[in-house]
Design a protein around this nucleic acid. Structure first.
Lengths: 358, 358
DNA sequence: CTGAAAGCGCTAACAC
DNA sequence: GTGTTAGCGCTTTCAG
């Protein structure tokens, strides 16, 4: 017996004494509360977690003590012990070439919406910007246990990478277009319908030479163009490749497209732009060149960003239901986390909002 | 010896067997890599942390194994052991009355900027919306060990609460106005100078009846009004209380202010609005009532949000240096975390950008 | 250079 | 109803 005791002691003594310095003054921990309350940490834990196993009196006493000392259970330790985690990561890809800031108001609004829903559900949001060319790395947030799942805003040119992530079991939901054989879950508006509605509206107002502005390498944009073409066909208007212009989401994309269009000499009486920012930039460029909107050229945007209705002329646009979208993203992701299987992609409502620019 | 062994075994047997189910399929952990590599976890740990104590050969072998299996060190466990953390929290308060979404493009841009800088510094960003009336709760992110410090965007009406948080040692930096005896660190643009520049510019263009739009309960806005008044005085123009209008940041604040101003019959030839969104809304309201901007009324905004230059007319505004601002916020916070003492408040550059609206 | 063992702050059997 | 104890996944002395 004595021998064993001695051994234990020597074991204890062998331990590392002082862990590396934490940053900042030491925080209170459960043991402190326990000591102050004259109970064990187990009781404190139970009290703070509302276990029915503690007396009401004890619970309130401990709760009050904790509150008065600003003590809060250490989430990391709790997570570790419980092997759980209530954090989800949201990544917004950026274009490394342009070193562009997350700034499209649409992304930002979506972020706000997701943040709201997550808060409501008791989840924390880890926000991260990643190089669009290295979307792969988004999974690290999952692999490292920091988050139980990942929301990616926009699929960019990374369809294959996203498929691969889904294949290896990373809980993942992407805001974007639904592609034929995709293996990950997407949430997005009906892009084909959106493109169709916008074009249909322009055709109904008598426009016939409708230009399309967008970067069709992005799945969502390609789908919108399908809708655009589909509406033209339905109205018996031949699609004109000269009117389909590549315009990137970068700041000068739309302006450059307007320049090319004018330089080409191809007549046009309307533009369907794949984002409101593009539409506004295009309108600015047209006006600078003396063209009137909507008289000479009608313009329809996409997104219905908050600014759209204040613009001059107020922007006709396709509204993406941001609130519903954020909610659907979160729902789909949490469902996936819980069930372990990939839920069906969801489509949220899309709506034409007619204002002054068309 | 045998006796001891038996005892160990019985100790082990007494352990809790199955921790509660984690969510999702089990993730790989260090022990798995160790087993696969035929070494101890200690060695894996050292290898993955680039300790000089392992052979280059071992290191690369383990690193490759980990990479091929998508294994990443569990950050929570690592943090716990190291008693450290490379996460900072950013809270953006919302007005609970209006249940308003984080949507002012300025906040969102600032968020983007902070996200960038943090990424650069190897920190993660935890984003959280909190009820502006309960800013107090922002500290919980710190108390619970989730973040080493907190960035608050906007001080709203919570000056006292912020002081209290700083007093009890929560590492905290606030984007906002610098107040006389504040005990927390702020980063912000020079609001007095901004208000002065805007007003000065309008005065120099010959305007004399300049209205001010803003909610002076917010420190930043109050400072901008000081600048406004100061410029008027310098130019020998008497300040006219009837021209200082309360306008909230909520969607209809500026429109309502325009209505009240017109209804009052007080003549005016310019407006200095405390945000670009307000300025754009005001311009819309003026135009609806047949007033021309800038001919009848010149308008100057604040922030220089991305949209400002695309607006019609393009907005004259006070640019807040967002990039520098985000960087300063992060610098100040990390400095505080490292040193444990509250750094001096910082002021970032402010600049008048003259465009078509004035 | 590598391995054994202890413990970061917490929770949950299990005994009392 | 409360305390004791082991261990979540990791890092790090200390011994070899």
């Amino acid at each position: 017996m004595r021998g064993r005791d001695d051994e234990s002691v020597s074991f204890k003594a062998m331990t590392d004494r002082r862990p590396p310095r934490g940053n900042g003054p030491k925080r209170l921990q459960m043991a402190d509360i326990a000591r102050l309350a004259g109970v064990s940490t187990a009781t404190v834990s139970r009290a703070l977690n509302n276990s029915p196993l503690v007396t009401d009196e004890t619970r309130t006493r401990i709760a009050e003590l904790a509150r008065s000392l600003n003590y809060t259970i250490n989430v990391d330790a709790k997570n570790l012990r419980l092997r759980q985690n209530r954090t989800i990561a949201m990544v917004v890809p950026y274009d490394p070439a342009a070193r562009q800031r997350v700034s499209d108001p649409f992304f930002l609004s979506m972020l706000g919406s997701v943040a709201d829903v997550l808060t409501e559900r008791g989840y924390a949001l880890l926000l991260s910007r990643v190089d669009a060319a290295d979307l792969q790395s988004a999974a690290q947030l999952y692999d490292s246990g920091r988050a139980v799942g990942v929301i990616v805003v926009g699929q960019w040119r990374q369809h294959a990478v996203l498929d691969a992530l889904a294949d290896r079991g990373v809980p993942l939901v992407v805001w974007g277009g639904q592609l034929p054989a995709q293996r990950y879950c997407t949430v997005g508006c009906d892009n084909v319908a959106g493109g169709d509605m916008a074009t249909d509206h322009l055709l109904l107002s008598g426009r016939r030479r409708i230009a399309f502005f967008g970067d069709v390498e992005l799945p969502e944009v390609a789908l919108r163009r399908s809708g655009y073409r589909q509406a033209l066909v339905r109205h018996g208007v031949a699609a004109n490749p000269a009117l389909e212009l590549h315009a990137s989401f970068l700041p000068d994309g739309a302006r450059a497209a307007v320049d090319r269009l004018l330089a080409s000499g191809e007549p046009f009486d309307a533009i369907f732009a794949c984002s409101d920012v593009m539409a506004m930039t295009a309108i600015g460029a047209l006006q600078e060149r003396g063209l009137k909107v909507p008289q000479d050229v009608a313009v329809v945007g996409y997104d219905d960003v908050p600014m759209a209705s204040y613009f001059h002329p107020p922007l006709t646009t396709i509204r993406q239901a941001i609130d519903a979208g954020g909610r659907a993203l979160v729902d789909a992701l949490l469902e996936q986390v819980d069930s372990g299987s990939i839920p069906a992609s969801r489509i949220v409502a899309t709506e034409l909002v007619i204002r002054g620019s068309s």
